[in-house]
Design a protein around this nucleic acid. Structure first.
Length: 582
DNA sequence: GCCGTTTTCGGCCCGACTGTTTTCAGTCG
């Protein structure tokens, strides 16, 4: 047996799907590989075991052919079918799928007719006017391809949740202000609290579509209209993100809201359920017909999204959970958890001040958090090895603890029940040793242990390093466990499942770092952690007071992770938290 | 390639928009 992980197999199956698509294979076959990849992602059991005991074939979405290929991968570490397939496709063609307006058919066409093998070659052919002469292409297609290449060169395509929030709120408010708008909503991956947003989706019900479409396309932040029809318009915002608006009639609103919230995979599963019940589901309604697509007389009356789920034998699925990653099983049994709400948070357990690399003083921080109505706020400035962040040594830490005690005394004298908690974000050094000795750590309220250097260690070395740290009884929380910076830096190599298991075994909590750059631990890993009883701390890792706002944003991600208020430690009031951290 | 109390073959989610056509294929979400 070779060591190949479930994730690696899953990614390889997705690669196969892309390659098959480019070869012009039957789209349903292509999708079978995508489905297989997804089935593996949400698989609970151990892949090697399932291969050897033959239970892999029982997994829905994995049939004879996929089972054989996965078995070959697990047993030998490679797959001949994949190697042959990869060798038969020009590698430069795959990247062309990212260019708007270019799909597999057109890519194949420029490849076969003009011998183009990569984006640079495509750009050259466009400039020489060769592409517009191909059948099915024209001048406009050629210009659009050139524009797409240029745009992608200048901007990335995705934005973080905090950037998306600013735009979404601004446009949402603008739409709400328009007199012809009856109802409007932000849908899409933003409503699902994805950590990274590709484009923004807005939905409006109105009796005057053209007025709203015109209004939307001429909003202040719009730099370019990409396409415009009678019920749909797509624009480019100033900073590069695409925003789509869909217009529907008001009685269609709940159906359209569900449809445009997605995810695509969730929607496909929903429509399949509708078909099984002899119904048809689209953005205009749920119809008692196999063919009718818009007849109001055949529409099953639904006032809310919840009604739609109920009609299909499901309890309400919150938007954040709509990824077709197990939510249907829960909704069938009416077992969707009551997800945590950000208003339940009572404080935070990982933050910085001007003692290390933060902006505000202890007192500014305390006053600000009191105004927000919070009960506690842990001060966990960096430790001495993080010299780039002005980390505290033992002496300064001792002084800070004194200062915090004094400030707490002053607040108490003013009748405030709010408390700053003492603490540190202690560096996990290479080898897993911590940057402070145990007797120092033992005297603090909260110890967060995090990695800030030596990112490039090998997977097993890094895993052992982190496990050693979380086994220290003085460590309460593992901070930003994978070190990723969204859209900037990949996670370091580690076996996250082993780390989760170690946290479970030692009663160490795991952070959901609320910084929009991190949102780490990723929501996809929390079902395993929660199952093993690991508690979550939603921590803004605040470096200035306004970062307290990250708590709201990250609670959306915690909801996506399926977490309840009980599973999040900082929903506890101070008097319930203190016994836990002793 | 997967799947099945209508099926082991013939389906597979669905509709809007664009550009190139002259009724539709390709792309997108």
């Amino acid at each position: 047996m070779s060591r190949i992980s479930k994730e690696e197999v899953s990614e390889l199956l997705e690669d196969i799907a892309v390659l098959l698509e480019l070869k012009g294979e039957n789209p349903f076959k292509t999708r079978a590989y995508t489905n297989g990849a997804r089935a593996l992602q949400s698989l609970d059991g151990d892949l090697e075991e399932m291969v050897s005991d033959g239970t892999l074939k029982d997994v829905k979405g994995i049939g004879d052919a996929l089972c054989k290929k996965i078995t070959e991968l697990v047993e030998t570490g490679s797959l001949k079918f994949y190697e042959d397939l990869k060798a038969s496709v020009e590698p430069g063609l795959v990247a062309m799928l990212d260019i708007p307006g270019l799909g597999p058919k057109k890519i194949l066409s420029v490849h076969e007719k003009l011998g183009i093998t990569d984006i640079d070659g495509l750009e050259k052919a466009c400039r020489e006017g060769k592409v517009e002469k191909l059948p099915g292409f024209g001048k406009k297609s050629q210009d659009k391809i050139l524009q797409g290449i240029e745009f992608r060169r200048q901007h990335g395509t995705h934005i973080r949740l905090d950037e998306a929030t600013e735009w979404a709120e601004e446009i949402h408010h603008a739409l709400r202000d328009h007199p012809e708008v009856i109802r409007c909503a932000v849908a899409g991956s933003f409503r699902r609290s994805k950590e990274i947003i590709g484009d923004l989706d807005f939905l409006v019900s109105t009796n005057d579509p053209s007025a709203v479409i015109h209004y939307f396309s001429s909003l202040d932040g719009v730099s370019e209209i990409l396409l415009q029809g009678e019920t749909k318009v797509s624009v480019r915002l100033r900073q590069g993100t695409q925003a789509d608006l869909r217009i529907i009639r008001d009685e269609e609103f709940p159906f359209a809201l569900h449809y445009f919230t997605g995810s695509k995979e969730h929607n496909i599963a929903m429509r399949q359920r509708a078909i099984q019940k002899g119904l048809r589901l689209n953005e205009y309604g749920l119809f008692r017909s196999k063919t009718e697509t818009r007849d109001p007389d055949l529409r099953v009356p639904c006032r809310t999204e919840e009604d739609i789920f109920n009609e299909l034998g499901l309890s309400y699925i919150p938007p954040e959970m709509r990824e077709d990653m197990g939510e249907f099983k829960l909704a069938e049994k009416d077992a969707i958890p009551r997800l945590v709400e950000w208003t339940r948070l009572k404080g935070s357990l990982h933050n910085h001040t001007n003692w290390s690399d933060g902006k505000n003083t202890l007192e500014q921080t305390a006053r600000y958090m009191i105004d927000l109505g919070l009960e506690y706020w842990a001060i966990t400035d960096h430790s001495k090895s993080s010299f780039q962040a002005n980390g505290l040594d033992e002496k300064r830490l001792e002084e800070q603890v004194e200062a915090i005690r004094a400030l707490n005394g002053k607040l108490e004298g003013e009748g405030e029940s709010f408390r700053l908690l003492t603490g540190t974000e202690v560096d996990i050094l290479s080898g897993g040793k911590l940057d402070f000795d145990d007797d120092i750590l033992a005297g603090l309220d909260i110890v967060v242990a995090s990695i800030h250097n030596g990112f490039s260690q090998k997977r097993d070395v890094m895993t052992a390093r982190i496990i050693k740290a979380v086994e220290n009884p003085n460590v309460h929380i593992l901070g930003h466990p994978t070190g990723r910076l969204l859209l900037q830096r990949d996670p370091y190599e580690l076996d996250i499942n082993k780390v989760i298991d170690a946290c479970a075994a030692n009663g160490t909590w795991i952070e959901l770092n609320a910084s929009p750059y991190r949102l780490d631990l990723d929501w996809r890993h929390w079902s395993r952690a929660a199952e093993k009883g690991v508690l979550c701390a939603i921590n803004p890792d605040a470096h200035r007071n306004e970062h307290a706002g990250f708590l709201k944003l990250a609670t959306g991600v915690a909801r996506k992770a399926g977490l309840t208020a009980d599973q999040v430690v900082n929903t506890r009031p101070l008097n319930a938290l203190l016994p836990l951290i002793k």
